[in-house]
Design a protein around this nucleic acid. Structure first.
Lengths: 144, 144
DNA sequence: TTAATTCCGACTTAATTTATCGGATTTCCG
DNA sequence: CGGAAATCCGATAAATTAAGTCGGAATTAA
């Protein structure tokens, strides 16, 4: 289980925008200077815009900026926009009785459980957390 | 972020073996009757064997069986064997200063955090839990 | 008007996933 | 002993997805 470069590049770009939040639009070139392929990144930023996570200013001096407060944009938002929703099994999106294994399939519950839990995890980290380096293994909500 | 069929088929097969634990070796054909492509499954079971999760009996009346108690085999073991370890970024396996972003990369902590947390999640579900349908959103270790 | 910049669809290439095939080996059982 | 039932294994093929490239249209500040 790994993250695609799409997800990673998207997150890098969003962190960059968070770091420059309030400084006006950041050009594609400036973001790509992080070491990301410029033309590929352009596609990804298009997806982020269509997902409502960034706004753009076209034309000279234009660029990209966050569409919301860094504290209100989470890793989940970004991963969802870049890779589609976390999905461990298509059987979850199908009606229960459509599954050839029937309703008491012993794995269905696990797919549900893991999907919900991982979504919670991703939702728990915002861009603000990241730029403030607030993410550690003892963050909020811990009990182990 | 999704699970490959490798991971899913592997888990289906292991649950089947757990359901028939103690009944002697189960043939590939019997497992494939779950609706999985037989020759592909054979590869996967080979990987599970090499990972030490199943043992095999060759020859007529042979087959596969769990190498350990169902309570001692977790979803993590199976996913790791099928897809390799959960890995959100290669920068984690490299030394800290090998990363071109330097030591204070704001995403590195997130990769670490998510990797550990997801591993914990997967480790928390055993085959025993699954066959007993013990997996729900209120399982052990909850505090939200 | 020009240069900077995003936007967009089509295309290419590379990598990975998902198988399939053919035969070698092992072992039960009559 | 011989045949059938199985696993084992390396190679290959097909399909899908990921990753990256290209060329040009549209927009806008200066």
């Amino acid at each position: 289980m790994k993250l695609s470069t799409k997800g990673k590049y998207g997150l890098y770009a969003m962190v960059f925008l968070a770091q420059h939040d309030g400084e006006g639009p950041q050009s594609l070139k400036a973001i790509a200077d992080l070491g990301l392929p410029e033309q590929y990144l352009e596609q990804l930023l298009g997806a982020l815009r269509r997902a409502g996570l960034v706004t753009t200013v076209r034309g000279a001096q234009g660029g990209y900026q966050l569409a919301a407060d860094p504290g209100d944009i989470t890793v989940l938002d970004i991963i969802d926009a870049m890779e589609g929703p976390v999905n461990f099994s298509d059987c979850l999106s199908a009606p229960k009785n459509a599954c050839p294994r029937g309703e008491n399939c012993p794995t269905r519950g696990v797919w549900e459980y893991l999907t919900v839990k991982i979504n919670d995890l991703l939702k728990g980290v915002s861009l603000k957390d990241m730029v403030e380096n607030n993410v550690s293994l003892q963050v909020e909500g811990e009990n182990e």
